[in-house]
């Protein structure tokens, strides 16, 4: 890429911010940093970053609020950083428009992986003319045109719903999708109770795709949040 991606880092804890910016620059990305939410909103407007890493526990303004404001005019990918226990906060942020999340404490590997995934999808979205008709990760291969799903060179038969789910996951490979999002995309409604049905579908899907459903290689569960398809 000629244009190095430009990342906005919003984090009030200095050591963590340092770590993030160090990791980013190690990949050659450009960055700009701030410790305040209001500043972040202003900067995202003036500087048009390609990605925003946003800590939810900011001193001046609620992180969720920042997401809402930014989403009013921009679809820039946002990765949120939050503490371990707050599932609800993560889900809320994701539903409000964040694209992925990181849980403190995290390592550089996770951080860079998330960044890579988000940037890739942005690229893909930008090149909308390119229609993706296949997808491959590890031993999983999907042919969207022919509606074939192949694991380790064997085709497997999926029900229509299962196919929709796996396609969706592939479309957003590497990114976490909340239960609500998946339900919304597949079934069009977001009734709370339906998450149970979703689980069951996912469980069945896993049994078909994974060697060991209890130790999945492809479809990772983020308990309390949603699901994520591995991307490399």
């Amino acid at each position: 890429m000629e244009n190095k991606p430009y990342i906005l880092v919003v984090e009030d804890d200095k050591p963590i911010r340092n770590f993030i910016t160090a990791a980013i620059s190690s990949q050659g990305y450009r960055y700009i940093e701030t410790s305040k939410g209001n500043e972040a909103i202003a900067l995202s407007m003036s500087n048009s970053p390609d990605l925003i890493i946003l800590d939810l526990g900011l001193p001046d303004i609620d992180g969720i609020e920042v997401i809402s404001r930014i989403r009013e005019w921009s679809s820039v990918p946002i990765i949120i950083v939050s503490a371990r226990e707050n599932e609800r906060q993560k889900v809320e942020a994701l539903d409000k428009g964040a694209d992925d999340y990181l849980t403190k404490p995290f390592g550089i590997g996770e951080l860079l992986a998330r960044i890579r995934v988000s940037l890739r999808h942005t690229m893909l979205n930008k090149n909308k003319e390119e229609i993706i008709d296949t997808f491959r990760v590890k031993n999983l291969f999907i042919d969207f045109e022919k509606r074939h799903v192949i694991i380790e060179n064997k085709e497997i038969h999926l029900t229509p719903i299962e196919y929709k789910i796996i396609s969706l996951l592939c479309k957003y490979s590497g990114r976490v999708l909340t239960h609500n999002f998946i339900i919304h995309e597949i079934w069009g409604t977001s009734l709370g109770n339906e998450t149970q049905s979703l689980r069951v579908f996912m469980a069945n899907l896993r049994r078909k795709i994974e060697k060991d459903p209890a130790q999945p290689e492809y479809i990772y569960t983020e308990v309390g949040v949603g699901y994520r398809l591995v991307d490399e």
Binding site: Q196, R199, V200, A203, P213, Q215, P216, T221
Partner: peptide, 15 residues
Amino acid sequence: KNMELVEEVVSEAVQ
């Protein structure tokens, strides 16, 4: 408490 899939909880724990 929520209805959770046992296998998901276990797999995430292992993960």
